[in-house]
Design a protein around this nucleic acid. Structure first.
Lengths: 340, 340
DNA sequence: CTGTTAGCGCTTTCAA
DNA sequence: TTGAAAGCGCTAACAG
């Protein structure tokens, strides 16, 4: 593989001149430029950005560390990040942690070694170890989708509590009292916040006695499992279920069917998060929908600003927490005006 | 940020000794090792892999260049690639081309500059420019999911033609004659192969006169559009539709509904590719299903072998084309024993 | 406008 | 078992 020296020799110039042509920096006469470009073409020269980055201290690469790209919610986030980063001249490395803090730590270590310019992190749990490491290396960092206990960091997320409140209130208003929530892991802020919103709505409407919470994970299997636990005893079953994410909702729907409950006739359902429209012929769930693409977009913008700040050694602006509103969509799963 | 020199100074050794500790290479006495490790911990030293890679000529990074991670088929491929690569100590960079050869070229250029150790490519079209560039830089390459005109390259893909034959034959055997196929772009091999398989099945069963093909793109919108084109004139409409991928299938299903056709009662449907099980409560489509995770896995294994070969300067084994079988699953969308 | 010098942080090669 | 020297390919800083 040709190096900048080979090109320089062939073009009869100094390596730095080649560098200037490649990077469009400094002054180069048209004559020189032409010669250099020709040499580049002839040698099929590909600049080595490792060497460039080693010298320039920037890789123009950011990383997105999240739980599982297989969940359409995160897939859309990934696209939002990639598109935005790409437009700004940044590359993206994606890392799936599968909700494991161990994997999260390993990946952040690796990413720091790779000298990424910045990291967008969806924390796997409440553990802040990787956050601390990233910050001690002074690598710009944005937290996405979930709250964390540290205060000195930017956070971009949706209004989980508000959305949960809205969904619960809706169920109450169409007549439900015995509403249960099936949520994710306790140490994941979105699971916690949705539960909080649910509880607040129940209390606000005098239904504190009917509060019934279940923790699990944000997966279809967990949705099934939690549903089995709650609906296996046929006495005093909830008349409505609030699934704390899309995958739980599907597990719940399937298992309710298996147990002989039909939705929404026997049990009403609402869910946080949607399945992307191009994957479903007839959307069924009443949901509160986040805007994952926009979340990814915003997180990337904030991160890139931080990166630019750090390059200019500007005084750091205050950290911000940006909370996106959610959108309520009523569909068939919640039924309506049901008599009990 | 501490460098290897800082660690060396602190530990009272030479930089190379630190290097040996980090990489577990060469001989280092336990005493030295301890001192070095302590210095590393105290300084929170993070090795710079750019410098390492510059010297060692390997980045332990591979790239997956594909069309759109938003399509669950490719999402699963991405997971297959990441998990396999990760296990072998490789990092993955993902690049979405959105079926644009332009973007494909730009990304491959960038990836070569980044000195990735290998590339897995799902070609955006029949253009082989990026393949040529990659090969001229002697970067190991594996083609995934689609055929290409070059012969000197490994290809991992599913049996599109066979699967299409199977689906078409199935429709014929349950009594359909007027079967149309809605496919993707003509210059994408999977669109072409599925069409071929369909045609061959039609001919083999004496239905050459009923062959009705439509090209478009592998998206929901295209599925809708193609369906509109074919079903807007109510005369001699097909009694069955073969959607060449999952997204087309959904667009078709929706639009058939809009046009007043019910599936499968008025029109039977089959489709290539499934929607992942954890995203759908009640799978509806009769499909031929690929194994995207395995495709990604296999492609990565083949690529990593090639990378190791190239490091050992071994004589290159012959290029292989690995074709995965597909799995037929009958569901409600195709109906059964319908009278015409 | 063009070039020289030095060095980014690491590891290979050779020597002790 | 440890280290010194050299250099991977590039560019910042300075000089001309």
């Amino acid at each position: 593989m040709a190096t900048i020296h080979d090109v320089a020799k062939k073009a009869g110039v100094a390596p730095i001149t080649v560098s200037r042509v490649i990077n469009n920096s400094g002054y180069v006469s048209d004559k020189m430029r032409k010669k250099v470009n020709q040499a580049i073409a002839e040698l099929e020269y590909v600049p080595n950005v490792l060497a460039r980055s080693l010298k320039s201290k920037r890789t123009n690469t950011i990383a997105l560390v999240f739980t599982d790209i297989t969940n359409p919610f995160f897939t859309m986030i990934a696209r939002g990040v990639e598109d935005t980063a790409s437009e700004a001249g940044f590359n993206v490395i994606f890392c799936n942690t599968d909700e494991s803090s161990d994997k999260e730590n390993k990946y952040t270590q690796l990413l720091l070694q790779k000298q990424v310019d910045g990291i967008i992190l969806v924390p796997a749990g409440s553990n802040t170890q990787s956050i601390n490491i990233i910050q001690r290396q002074k690598t710009p960092l944005v937290i996405l989708d979930r709250r964390v206990s540290c205060k000195n960091v930017d956070v971009i997320r949706s209004d989980s509590e508000g959305g949960a409140y809205q969904l619960t209130k809706f169920l109450i208003e169409i007549g439900h009292k015995r509403i249960c929530i099936l949520s994710g892991r306790k140490d994941v802020s979105t699971a916690e916040d949705r539960l909080k919103g649910y509880k607040r709505a129940m209390r606000d409407h005098g239904l504190a006695d009917f509060i019934q919470c279940s923790y699990g994970r944000f997966t279809q299997e967990s949705g099934s499992q939690q549903t089995k636990n709650i609906f296996s005893e046929k006495e005093n079953c909830p008349t409505a279920v609030f699934a704390a994410n899309n995958l739980i909702a599907i597990g719940t729907l399937i298992t309710l069917g298996d147990l002989g409950f039909s939705v929404p006739d026997d049990v009403a359902m609402v869910s946080f998060d949607d399945i992307p429209e191009n994957l479903v012929a007839e959307p069924f769930f009443t949901v509160v929908r986040q805007a994952p693409y926009k979340l990814g977009q915003k997180a990337t913008q904030v991160l890139i600003n931080r990166i630019k700040e750090s390059r200019n050694e500007k005084t750091t602006k205050d950290f911000q927490e940006i909370v996106f509103p959610v959108e309520f969509i009523e569909r068939a799963s919640s039924g309506k005006n049901i008599d009990f």
